[in-house]
Design a protein around this nucleic acid. Sequence first.
DNA 1: ATTTTAATGTCTTTTTTTTAGACATTAAAA
DNA 2: TTTTAATGTCTAAAAAAAAGACATTAAAAT
Lengths: 241, 241
Amino acid sequence: MINYNEKNLVNQLSIDCVIFGYQQKELKVLVPKLFFKGDFWTLPSGFIFQEEGIDEAAKRILEQRTGIKDIFLEQYRVFGNVPRTTHAALNSMLELNKSHFDTLKVNDNFLEWLTQRFISIGYYALVDINKVVPNLTEIDQSIEWYNISELPPMISDHNQQVVFALEALRQNLDSKLLGFNLLPEEFTMKELQQLYEAVYAKPFRRNNFQKKMLDLEVLERVGKKLTGAANKAPYLYRFKR
Amino acid sequence: MINYNEKNLVNQLSIDCVIFGYQQKELKVLVPKLFFKGDFWTLPSGFIFQEEGIDEAAKRILEQRTGIKDIFLEQYRVFGNVPRTTHAALNSMLELNKSHFDTLKVNDNFLEWLTQRFISIGYYALVDINKVVPNLTEIDQSIEWYNISELPPMISDHNQQVVFALEALRQNLDSKLLGFNLLPEEFTMKELQQLYEAVYAKPFRRNNFQKKMLDLEVLERVGKKLTGAANKAPYLYRFKR
DNA sequence: ATTTTAATGTCTTTTTTTTAGACATTAAAA
DNA sequence: TTTTAATGTCTAAAAAAAAGACATTAAAAT
């Protein structure tokens, strides 16, 4: 049982994670739904232990939800301008579920602790969606992948956080060669292109996209992908380490 | 007198500011020296009041040190991986100055409060160096502009923070047209170019630089600058609002 | 007044990069 | 063996960036 107090955790500071995945030509975000009366979704969140670095804390939170140990993650922004949007929603949720909190394995002051003003460090993470085993914490009712264009309404400013996270991802995908974190070990050029198209929400030209990627000199061919279709089999590539 | 406790301020969270200025073809940073025995420099720092947003807090801290109200500032990174570098330096400073703290107008628990682990939100600010009236707080001995390449050794990870801030500035100077914040209201094209050369630490070609700037369509001519030299007078430009 | 000087303003040419078009390759079905 | 449909790669066109060249002009020198 985690002791929610300032001896154990850094007070008033949380970490909110936007976990990006990619599947079937769609960019997705992993969003848990809270185990409370009413429909309340939030980004996967957590707090920072006193003896723990913030990246470390984010890694822990992400591992807990995805089961992935070596996850790619990046801090992109702090959200802390009071009042954060619709703090009201959090309160209405707490109001609806007062009794419910008694059943949780938390210390007595948990509610007081939780309803303080929070400043949140935003991280985004990139994962191979096939490697993820979505995992419920004790306050989750369910956890699901949502298309980025079809996110449920989340509490506080979490929908807005996704907008910022996506912007940060777009800025970095190219320059920092992050795309590979969203794909399986081996992938075809078309798959890589479709990923880019999903992230930037615009089409790329096949020939030029391939040239650009190969010119980066970070890809190596590892074979061919025989699909059984009546056409040439594409090469498989993988990210050089 | 500020009450340094968690009723009044957000605990364990600070704001560190890299204040950039530009003068005589040099990019500079405003750095106070602490009013303690021993040579201790730090970035201008402060804390966040409970009823205050983080941008608001940064603005307040910056106004206090520079006297400028409408300052340009941008959050660029959070530093919070424990142990932050040379926390030892802070301790040795406190050790040297135990008695000194009694003379400060602070509450009794100030020392305990200050020596906690801190997570810091990094902001950088851009100012017209001529408009700044550097202002000492009660813990400063002096405050000075240093060339970015000749910064004094600062406590904790503050020198490293400047490296990150400069990187963020370089990424944004162009795309977000920030340069004007570092210059007086009116400036010549050459002055603008020299500013860019100072920030990026590399030369630009006069003709192409001018074309690029004018093509942005954010500059307007406001007259000529008659210098008394035996040559053509340059135009003065100003940033369109 | 006229010429000279030196810095700025602007146009043209060259080079590089990006984008678009065209064609070659090939695994498997017909 | 031919056809199909997707991938791989080369070439041409367009756009952008870099380099070069020359025009303009305020004030000093003549």
